[in-house]
């Protein structure tokens, strides 16, 4: 028998702990990505000459480079300049920034899809620009892109495994540690994979359903 069920059962609690860390990273990273992405999207949309271009490059660059290298940069370079944080905090910020480049694009498409008449009506009512964004444009833009954001959230959940490379002790790192301590990798890695699947598959089904429900709006 290749698969050792008893061993598998004995390591499950440990792996579930790892899963909980992964979930925490994802939730915290999501908050950063959602807020930062929104800020970036609005700045890019406002077409301030130099600033917009700077943020365009930001999006291009972050999307064009690997998460692993971004994590290494934060983990190895920052301490040289007196900025040290825990691996977990570093990992959360890195993955949040990484995904902000994607959410910024998502928001942009949402903002773009708000009909020009909405801007005009807001102006005709003399709403100041801030209220126009927060009260009129963004509520509509964000609503239409919630499923897309949901997909990125799930993607982030899976991508967070990369942070094990900078010693963040999440699900995959737990599995690896168990593997090297017991010289058995099959069970921990398989269970880790199944746990990822167990969360992400139902989650993406939910996003699909949400997508169908939100579709007829507007």
């Amino acid at each position: 028998m290749i698969w050792d069920s008893e061993f598998a059962l004995s390591i499950l609690p440990d792996l579930l702990q790892g899963l909980w860390v992964t979930v925490q990273i994802t939730l915290a990273g999501t908050v950063i990505a959602m807020i930062l992405g929104l800020v970036v999207a609005v700045i890019r949309f406002s077409r301030l000459p130099v600033v917009s271009q700077l943020f365009n490059f930001y999006v291009q660059f972050v999307r064009g480079t690997p998460l692993l290298i971004q994590a290494y940069c934060a983990f190895f370079i920052l301490p040289n300049y007196g900025l040290s944080f825990s691996p977990m905090a570093t990992g959360i910020v890195v993955i949040g920034i990484n995904y902000s480049a994607y959410t910024a694009e998502v928001y942009r498409s949402g903002i773009h899809d708000v009909p020009p008449g909405q801007w005009e009506a807001a102006k005709a009512l003399n709403l100041p620009i801030g209220a126009t964004w927060t009260r009129i444009i963004l509520p509509q833009a964000v609503r239409s892109v919630i499923p897309l954001l949901g997909n990125y959230l799930i993607q982030m959940f899976k991508d967070s495994a990369v942070l094990s490379a900078i010693t963040v002790f999440e699900l995959l790192a737990h599995a690896q540690a168990i593997g090297s301590n017991n010289f058995r990798y099959l069970e921990p890695l398989t269970i880790a994979g199944l746990l990822f699947l167990l969360v992400s598959y139902p989650a993406s089904q939910m996003v699909r359903r949400l997508e169908r429900r939100l579709a007829p709006a507007h």
């Binding site: 290749i2 899976k158 991508d159 967070s160 495994a161 990369v162 094990s164 995959l172 599995a175 690896q176 593997g179 058995r184 990798y185 099959l186 890695l189 398989t190 880790a192 994979g193 199944l194 990822f196 699947l197 992400s200 598959y201 993406s204």
Partner: peptide
Amino acid sequence: EVFRGTSLLVQMFWFFFALPF
């Protein structure tokens, strides 16, 4: 669904460390 639903890094480790079993 399996390959989209799990992490790439988990898959890579699985092919490298678990498949030998």
